[in-house]
Design a protein around this nucleic acid. Sequence first.
DNA 1: CGGAGAGTTGACAGCTTTCAACATCAGTGG
DNA 2: CCACTGATGTTGAAAGCTGTCAACTCTCCG
Lengths: 239, 239
Amino acid sequence: MSYLDQTAVAANDMQRRNAASAKHLAAIASFAEFGAKSLKFSPHDVVYYEGDEARRLYHLERGTIMLFKLLPDGRRQVVEVLRPGDIFGLASSSEHDCTAETLTDAQVQEIDLRQVETSPEFQRRLTRCLTSQMNALHDHAVLLGRKSAHERVASFLMYLVPNRGGVGCVGPDPERVDDSSDIKLHMTRQEIADYLGLTIETVSRVVSDLKRKGVIRADKSDQIHLHKVCSLCQMTGFH
Amino acid sequence: MSYLDQTAVAANDMQRRNAASAKHLAAIASFAEFGAKSLKFSPHDVVYYEGDEARRLYHLERGTIMLFKLLPDGRRQVVEVLRPGDIFGLASSSEHDCTAETLTDAQVQEIDLRQVETSPEFQRRLTRCLTSQMNALHDHAVLLGRKSAHERVASFLMYLVPNRGGVGCVGPDPERVDDSSDIKLHMTRQEIADYLGLTIETVSRVVSDLKRKGVIRADKSDQIHLHKVCSLCQMTGFH
DNA sequence: CGGAGAGTTGACAGCTTTCAACATCAGTGG
DNA sequence: CCACTGATGTTGAAAGCTGTCAACTCTCCG
């Protein structure tokens, strides 16, 4: 395979999402076995702060949570956006390296790591979960390091369309006549900007531009209708 | 803890490196138990390509390896730089999401994942390793998303100084009179640029600028003497 | 109705990229 | 031993993208 031959590239991002629901149900059961405590959060609640002592492991059952880091001068980078089924809170030092904050109402299962360490079955599940999160972090590094503002926003929007976007995009569903989709962002412009490594102004400008081009329509500022998913997908840099 | 309060921030990046040597030795033993096959590579050998079928797990025993992804138009992002003790090759789909290429001579242990899945002890080690790699990916996301070219290069150089750099930098060793350090990059300007999300020209310009300011001296293009580690550390954005 | 927060838009500045020329280095072969 | 050659690295000038700053609009709620 040559440096530029991309024909055989993995469809990891997609498959990650297809596997999510099955993984999700299994993981809930698994956590329950270990006497997990279930916690409920409102939007913009903090589960833990960067620097807090790391003792427990968390499993996102319902809702969306972001992990972010801050620089001393206030610059913020959202490093992960978690979905149901994802696990978070593991730390390699004694302290959390990120702040975990909810984006929506969220339900989280909390469990002591020492309890689950004894279960090989749970460990395998954990490994799979971490691996898929690492793949998402790899994609995100490409976005942050090599994509233009337009490509970042397009990638972000595609990320919210089930079974689409990413390197192994399946294309429009042949069963369906149109190729549109409605998505809910659950994030403010500031959060999107901090996730994409941009400013709010740039995010706003790119979204306006996509509207002007007729690719999307904003029903509310965080409720977007994609007229043609495929044409948006063409703007992600993956094609 | 307020949005901007950084006093209690974790020293994860540092502790990751301090733990590396102990983890390293233990992991070698662990892999040997499972009948790992030891492989040797020359610089710029490819261990596997993005898109190759993922069957095995790799443990870097000696040397340096980078993982990178490509966009169809040839843009490249180096997503991880691995050191001895790191584990790689896990895939959430059936295919590798990155290409793994050596930067130096390298020795790698190769093992079938199914063999190690049965060992809780190994699984715990794997979890710790993945966690510390995820923390490194988080730091890298901050670098790519929020740091200037100068900060990126300074962070990169500090990353190669043992026990320094990162949020929890311990400062200069009080036992030592000077605060200098010699580092070997093991990477071309192109590889550094692709790691830092910059162009080779920008990397070259920043390095020249650091020379002009008297912060560093380049003995060879990939062999750098840091005159005052602390003053370089001040430029990373972490202070 | 009024105020605060979130989002949008415009003008301009600045940083990084792009493009091009040149320098340096290492390896090869005469 | 030295000239040649290709790869790698450096530097300059100009362009372009994104950030900054500021003004304005929109939406939500009291």
